[in-house]
Design a protein around this nucleic acid. Structure first.
Length: 492
RNA sequence: GCCGGCGUAGCUCAGCGGUAGUAGCAGGGUCUUCAUAAGGCCAAGGUCACAGGUUCGAGUCCUGUCGCCGGCACCA
């Protein structure tokens, strides 16, 4: 993240392909996209990874339900997730699948390194098994010590020999990491959470499953009877996507990177994965950003409640940038946020149609109607020192634009997307007031200067919007250039 | 049960020791016409969850109560 490095790596988590793409994942990948586009605009070389997690029991079962081979099932879903790229206008350059041959090799090599370091050993793993469900039950699933679906059935304890990872060995190193680097996990509340968890003590966790029970996974190196447990394999994607371990050029250049994950993933990303990296002798991640969840009308989205929101449907109905805008502006980046169609349309009308869209339309028309020759704008390319500051003469504009840029940059570098957008909208509001005051539709001696100033500011607004609303940003540049007004966001 | 957070205008939130914020959105009045019946201005709207305490002074610090929400290991 420092200026001199000039390269930037960001990755989402890999969604598990047992369901359709969820609006919550759309939020995560849009966050990552904004950051990636921002650093790209700043002149950084950016590597942006996403993909899908395809191994494990749930997928194995799903594929059986649908009478498909696991790989065939995964192929179908991988495609659905790839469709998000166009729907949400994403700029990622790497889409990894955990069934990619290269990833499989990487996971096995990673295993060997941890093993070599003495961190992998065999032990009996006690599984709680509900005969009624014919399923393993985890502690967190249980209600009053029993299966919530079959409370009368007694849970059986099944012992199974698994490989374990010596997580307990890393307690001190992890605590030191959190204490030395308070920015390692954002927001701070999540850092505190993981720190408190770590202080309570770490237990080694199992990292393999018996192949005879569930064959859909990566074979454990040197032991045919086991496959690597799904998330030990999945986490490694963050470096296998960079070519590790075969080709280290990209890996050496980009790693470590920033990882974005949901709050349900705090432990895996900011703790377990970090311990794994240390064990394998690799650098820990640069930073972990943890976002919240999206509720639907105040409730958790679930099929049974029938309140699941599909990102594809939203995009089809309202357009890509509208969806991006809502998620970035309305959902506080580190907290849970709520989706309703009412809120969505209200944001659209007040901010996009009446705010941004209307301002562009009025200025473009003013410029078109003006009898003066107004000089061409600078191209929309980023240049560190110019922004608008140097071109605009009006000192009030200079001040507010400088303030906006500064707050915007700070907000973005701290993942406060909504606040960065608020900064831009303050500038929009400033322009509306300026127009009202100067009345540039009337002929006057400063008419030319006023319209010129406005065009320059809108040019800056389009630049600031670029990471958030890339398509709209481009349309604004076009309209400013051609002086042809066309509504960006028709009122609904 | 243990640990942490939150409760400020109809809604979303800022403020975290000095008369509550030029807040935003919604609602009301008014001015204007370049613009997507958009925009500007003005007014209204709060016993800062409740009860004690510390302090010259408390949304702001402390204690307690109530309410809501997270975390407490195999959820990818």
């Amino acid at each position: 993240m420092t200026e001199k490095k000039k390269k930037f790596y960001i990755t989402t988590t890999l969604p598990y392909v047992n369901a359709e793409p969820h609006i919550g994942f759309a939020l995560e990948i849009i966050h990552a996209d904004v950051i990636a586009r921002y650093y790209h605009q700043q002149g950084y070389e950016v590597f942006f990874n996403t993909g899908v997690d395809e191994h494990g029991l749930k997928i194995f079962r799903k594929s059986q339900e649908k009478n498909l081979k696991p790989q065939a099932y995964c192929d179908i879903y991988a495609k659905r997730y790839k469709n998000l790229k166009q729907a949400l206008n994403l700029s990622y350059n790497s889409f990894i699948r955990t069934t990619d041959p290269h990833h499989i090799k990487a996971a096995q090599e990673f295993w060997r390194r941890c093993d070599k370091n003495g961190d992998i050993y065999k032990k009996d793993y006690k599984i709680k098994y509900c005969v009624g469900c014919e399923l393993e039950k985890t502690e967190s699933e249980l209600v009053e010590g029993g299966c919530p679906i079959h409370p009368d059935e007694k849970l059986e304890i099944i012992k199974e020999e698994n490989y374990f990872f010596r997580y307990s060995r890393y307690q001190d190193k992890l605590l030191e990491l959190y204490q030395k680097n308070p920015q390692f996990v954002v927001p701070e509340s999540r850092l505190n959470e993981i720190e408190e968890f770590t202080k309570r003590g770490l237990e080694d966790f199992s990292i393999s499953r018996l192949k005879e029970k569930m064959p859909w996974g990566i074979p454990v190196p040197g032991d045919d009877k086991h496959i690597i447990y799904v998330w030990f394999d999945a986490l490694i994607n963050y470096i296998s996507c960079l070519g590790w371990p075969d080709s280290l050029e990209k890996f050496d250049h980009f790693w470590p990177g920033v990882q974005i994950a949901g709050k349900d993933n705090l432990r895996q990303q900011s703790s377990m994965w970090q311990a794994m990296l240390i064990s394998a002798g690799l650098s820990i991640s640069e930073q972990i950003f943890i976002h919240g969840f999206i509720t639907s009308g105040g409730q958790k989205m679930s099929k049974s409640l029938g309140n699941v929101v599909s990102p594809f449907e939203l995009v089809e109905k309202y357009g890509t940038d509208t969806v991006r805008y809502f998620l970035l502006r309305e959902i506080p980046s580190t907290e849970d946020g709520d989706f309703t169609y009412e809120k969505f349309e209200q944001r659209y009308n007040s901010d996009l149609a009446k705010g941004l869209g209307n301002l562009i339309a009025r200025v473009v028309t003013l410029a078109k109607n003006s009898k003066f020759e107004i000089p061409d704008l600078h191209p929309p390319k980023f240049s560190k020192k110019t922004w608008a500051g140097r071109q605009i003469q009006n000192p009030k504009f200079k001040t507010i634009i400088n303030k906006t840029q500064e707050n915007y940059r700070k907000a973005l570098e701290e993942f406060r997307f909504n606040e960065a957008l608020i900064e831009i909208w303050d500038l929009i509001s400033f322009c509306d007031k300026y127009i009202e005051k100067e009345r540039p539709w009337e002929e006057s001696k400063n008419q030319k200067e006023v319209i010129g100033n406005l065009l320059l500011v809108l040019n800056e607004i389009a630049k600031l919007l670029q990471p958030f609303l890339p398509e709209t940003s481009e349309k604004i540049f076009q309209q400013l250039k051609t002086r042809k007004s066309k509504p960006l966001f028709p009122r609904i």
